[in-house]
Lab assay of single mutants.
Amino acid sequence: MTEYKLVVVGAGGVGKSALTIQLIQNHFVDEYDPTIEDSYRKQVVIDGETCLLDILDTAGQEEYSAMRDQYMRTGEGFLCVFAINNTKSFEDIHHYREQIKRVKDSEDVPMVLVGNKCDLPSRTVDTKQAQDLARSYGIPFIETSAKTRQGVDDAFYTLVREIRKHKEKMSKDGKKKKKKSKTKCVIM
């Protein structure tokens, strides 16, 4: 069974824990209790493949930012979460993405942009803004509501699919490099 290491990042209060708990335990946590770091595991079937999701729910508070490099190193894919009623959390996505790329030393890291709290009427981040940002990053965008469960499975499952595509691409690139290195030079 394939294991996928997913990391949920975003500013404090955007609903990272609520999304994760909704996926794992099928219930909505409405009281806000700032996370330092929590880890969850769940076995699911995605596109006919049974897999184990190892999900790291991270601290959004700035005082825990020193811990970010460590979990970013171990993560295979990242859910970059903002709240649709919090423009600052949307603007912060850029910083999370840049930090992930720096730590992973790669421009090509599996990510999904997630606009959470889409059940709320007080939207300050337009869907088109988020779609445009995701398009500019070359990553999928999904709106979710941890409260109603809308888009929750889709967000995590899409990230797994992005990781699969990335692994497939990397193995193809690896095979191309191996083929090239088999060419021999004969000096007579």
Score class of each variant (00 low, 15 high):
residue 158 T to V: 09
residue 55 I to Y: 01
residue 4 Y to M: 15
residue 116 N to K: 00
residue 35 T to D: 00
residue 150 Q to G: 09
residue 86 N to R: 06
residue 153 D to P: 06
residue 20 T to N: 06
residue 121 P to R: 06
residue 155 A to Y: 15
residue 12 G to N: 15
residue 80 C to L: 12
residue 22 Q to E: 09
residue 142 I to Q: 02
residue 112 V to E: 01
residue 38 D to R: 00
residue 123 R to F: 06
residue 180 K to G: 12
residue 100 I to M: 07
residue 79 L to R: 00
residue 32 Y to E: 01
residue 42 K to E: 06
residue 132 D to I: 05
residue 45 V to A: 11
residue 34 P to T: 05
residue 175 K to N: 06
residue 86 N to V: 03
residue 101 K to G: 10
residue 176 K to A: 14
residue 47 D to M: 07
residue 12 G to E: 11
residue 102 R to S: 06
residue 66 A to H: 12
residue 17 S to Q: 01
residue 129 Q to R: 07
residue 104 K to H: 10
residue 23 L to Q: 15
residue 30 D to M: 10
residue 58 T to L: 05
residue 81 V to T: 09
residue 44 V to Q: 12
residue 65 S to T: 08
residue 43 Q to F: 06
residue 136 S to C: 08
residue 139 I to A: 04
residue 163 I to W: 02
residue 12 G to Q: 08
residue 106 S to R: 11
residue 137 Y to P: 10
residue 9 V to L: 14
residue 102 R to M: 06
residue 128 K to P: 05
residue 120 L to E: 09
residue 22 Q to R: 12
residue 172 K to W: 07
residue 135 R to Q: 10
residue 46 I to V: 11
residue 117 K to Q: 13
residue 28 F to C: 02
residue 119 D to H: 13
residue 146 A to V: 09
residue 31 E to W: 03
residue 168 E to K: 03
residue 137 Y to N: 10
residue 6 L to R: 00
residue 112 V to H: 02
residue 127 T to C: 06
residue 40 Y to C: 00
residue 164 R to Q: 14
residue 106 S to A: 11
residue 3 E to A: 04
residue 52 L to M: 15
residue 55 I to K: 00
residue 38 D to P: 00
residue 150 Q to A: 13
residue 43 Q to V: 08
residue 20 T to D: 04
residue 33 D to C: 02
residue 142 I to W: 12
residue 119 D to A: 15
residue 49 E to A: 11
residue 118 C to G: 08
residue 170 M to Y: 15
residue 21 I to M: 05
residue 142 I to D: 02
residue 97 R to D: 14
residue 125 V to P: 07
residue 42 K to S: 09
residue 5 K to H: 09
residue 158 T to R: 05
residue 35 T to W: 00
residue 157 Y to T: 07
residue 117 K to Y: 15
residue 182 K to Y: 10
residue 21 I to A: 03
residue 4 Y to G: 05
residue 121 P to W: 08
residue 161 R to E: 07
residue 7 V to R: 01
residue 13 G to C: 10
residue 137 Y to S: 11
residue 3 E to Y: 04
residue 88 K to W: 11
residue 95 H to S: 14
residue 54 D to E: 09
residue 11 A to Y: 06
residue 42 K to F: 06
residue 40 Y to D: 00
residue 41 R to V: 09
